[in-house]
Design a protein around this nucleic acid. Sequence first.
DNA 1: CCAAGCTCCAAACTAGCGTTTAAAACAGAT
DNA 2: ATCTGTTTTAAACGCTAGTTTGGAGCTTGG
Lengths: 219, 219
Amino acid sequence: MNHKGTSASIIKAAEILFAEQGFAETTVRQITSKADVNLAAINYHFGSKKGLIQAVAEKFLTPLCTELTSMLEHRNLSTDAGQVTLDELLEILMRTLLVVNHDNVNALAVFMRLLELSYMQNQEELRGFLISRYQDTLQPFIQLLRADAAPMEDDEFFWRLHFCLGSITFTLSNFQTLHGIEKREFDSGAEVERILHRMIPVLSAGLQARTDKTYFCRV
Amino acid sequence: MNHKGTSASIIKAAEILFAEQGFAETTVRQITSKADVNLAAINYHFGSKKGLIQAVAEKFLTPLCTELTSMLEHRNLSTDAGQVTLDELLEILMRTLLVVNHDNVNALAVFMRLLELSYMQNQEELRGFLISRYQDTLQPFIQLLRADAAPMEDDEFFWRLHFCLGSITFTLSNFQTLHGIEKREFDSGAEVERILHRMIPVLSAGLQARTDKTYFCRV
DNA sequence: CCAAGCTCCAAACTAGCGTTTAAAACAGAT
DNA sequence: ATCTGTTTTAAACGCTAGTTTGGAGCTTGG
């Protein structure tokens, strides 16, 4: 049983620190210190810091992936399965994120930081990995989103999708800071649910907004 | 004339690298190498890497600040100055960003990275600096936004504002990557204008969306 | 009981970071 | 031409990052 004791406490500490500070900003000495294990433990159990990041990442990727799929299937099997609305789809997405966050309050922030990182240049490797892992699960969901969004060209939908992604990743990555700005007290667990809920009508309206063909004149 | 030659080429190289990679990920050796100057030049001319970051930052902060103010004043002095619409306000914001980007195509990405950084924990200093520098200019603009947004509580507006900020910072920080995903060819200069324009109806609809009081049930 | 095999540990190692230094090169004024 | 102050240079410095190492400690099967 002490087999996984060290590994587990390393992952636990890493989750918290990664969520708070990001991957690059967190040092292995911080992690091993917080986990109260030897400095060399990370390299022994995970090979490298990169290996630890992957271990932490994969711990959340699979549940999130399967959760979204099952939520979508459950909705489709429902008897009153009319055309699914945009708000319903977004609620499913938010509920999925919330479920992942339920087991571990740092899961969301870590996942969002991973997403942000994947959109940086010089990270084609991570981007490719996430795409190969997620696109089969995400593509049907995205197509449903598109079906309920305002009719628009491919490129317009591409950018609107990333506007939404920006809202989500920015808000959840910086949730601790934002929550600290807005309120003093810390009941961050329940607050996440409220924020995710707040997003639904906003993102829904953004995706359904008219597609404006008029160009604003240059300065 | 050779006075500012070294400083200028350092700043020029730094802008590009900061925009591409971010501040922490860019090393002084990368910068001095790209600028083709001696390694010690940054410390000689700017005191430190932090000093260089501030120099690069301030080069964009002042123009952006004054530009937004003048745009707002110009709008208010207009003869047909009815109640300004939300789309108008957002267009003013986007035009402001575009003007800043006009002189230097890396200005926007650098500025957005600065914003993102300021929302990280352990960056209260930068956050405080930006607030003290911007809030006088931004507060009137934000109040105009709020007047045109759907009626809502303070906290709801706070979060919606940051949803918008997330869309903008994410899109512009990762513009190079996103643009590379969507299209092969690189005419990124003109494309920025198109993206900023695409945002207007989306953000507008998001801010004007109904405020949903119903809560989605817990899982 | 004891060899075998994990696991843990203190310490050292390599590499890269931002920075400092002191001398050389240069500029303009006297 | 020389002195003065500024700029550039090559080299080294101190520090911290992630990683490696060799041996000590422990558990387990023969």
